[in-house]
Computed example of a mutant assay.
Amino acid sequence: MNNQTVSTLNDLLQITNDRIEGFNKVEDKVWEKYPNLKSDYNNMVDQSQKMRLELKSLISERNGDADDSTTVAGGLHRTWIDVKNAFSSDNAESTLENVTFGENAAIQAYEKALDSGDLCPESSRVVQDQLHSLKASYEKFKNLENRHD
């Protein structure tokens, strides 16, 4: 179970690193159009950094080595964001769509990890708390995106 727990936590760490890298793609133009989102965005960035530290701590406590890389899928998605934004007339709208897409992907990965049975009880509690935060941020951005369709 310990090796499975570490492996699953490392998968979530990579997803969290993807999330952090994705947030680096958010352009200042978004804040010009949606200034009220800036504080929510900053909270999401801070939340991601905290999640990253929590996952690394759980991995270390289980004598594992943290894989502080990102996923291939996340890298492809960030490249797609660059291409899409290059051809989009409204980068702010496109960026919001990408935030919600990325948050949904993270939610799915977290749910899969919890359903796998590979996490020890302590790790499950931390991952469940992180999933709750992911869902809250997803809803915030998804609701905004829906208002502008």
Rank of each mutant, 00 (worst) to 15 (best):
M51I: 05
V6T: 03
T16D: 03
T71Y: 01
L96A: 14
E139A: 05
V45N: 12
D149A: 15
L76I: 06
M51N: 10
H132A: 00
P35Y: 07
S137V: 02
V126C: 14
N104D: 01
N43M: 10
T71I: 07
S60W: 15
E54W: 01
G74P: 08
E32Q: 14
I81A: 07
L131I: 06
N143M: 02
L58C: 14
A106F: 04
H77S: 09
P35D: 08
D115Y: 07
R147W: 06
S133R: 03
V6N: 01
R125V: 11
K50Q: 05
Q128G: 06
R19P: 09
L144P: 14
D149C: 15
V6L: 03
N2M: 05
I20L: 03
L53I: 11
N10R: 12
D11K: 04
K38V: 13
W80V: 11
E61A: 15
D18S: 12
N24C: 02
H77Q: 10
S88F: 04
L96V: 15
L131F: 09
K135C: 02
A66K: 05
R19Y: 03
V126G: 12
K38D: 08
Y110S: 00
E111R: 14
D28Q: 08
Y41H: 09
S94M: 05
M44G: 15
R52A: 02
N42G: 07
T8P: 11
T95M: 09
N24K: 01
F23C: 10
Y110E: 00
G75W: 03
L119W: 04
N10K: 13
H148T: 15
E103Y: 11
S57R: 06
N91C: 04
A113S: 15
V72T: 10
P35Q: 05
S57L: 13
V45R: 14
R147K: 05
Y34K: 12
A73Q: 04
R78Y: 08
E54P: 04
I15D: 09
F87K: 12
K140A: 02
L76K: 15
V126P: 12
S48I: 08
D149M: 13
M1N: 08
N24T: 01
R52W: 00
L76R: 14
S88T: 01
N85P: 12
H132Y: 03
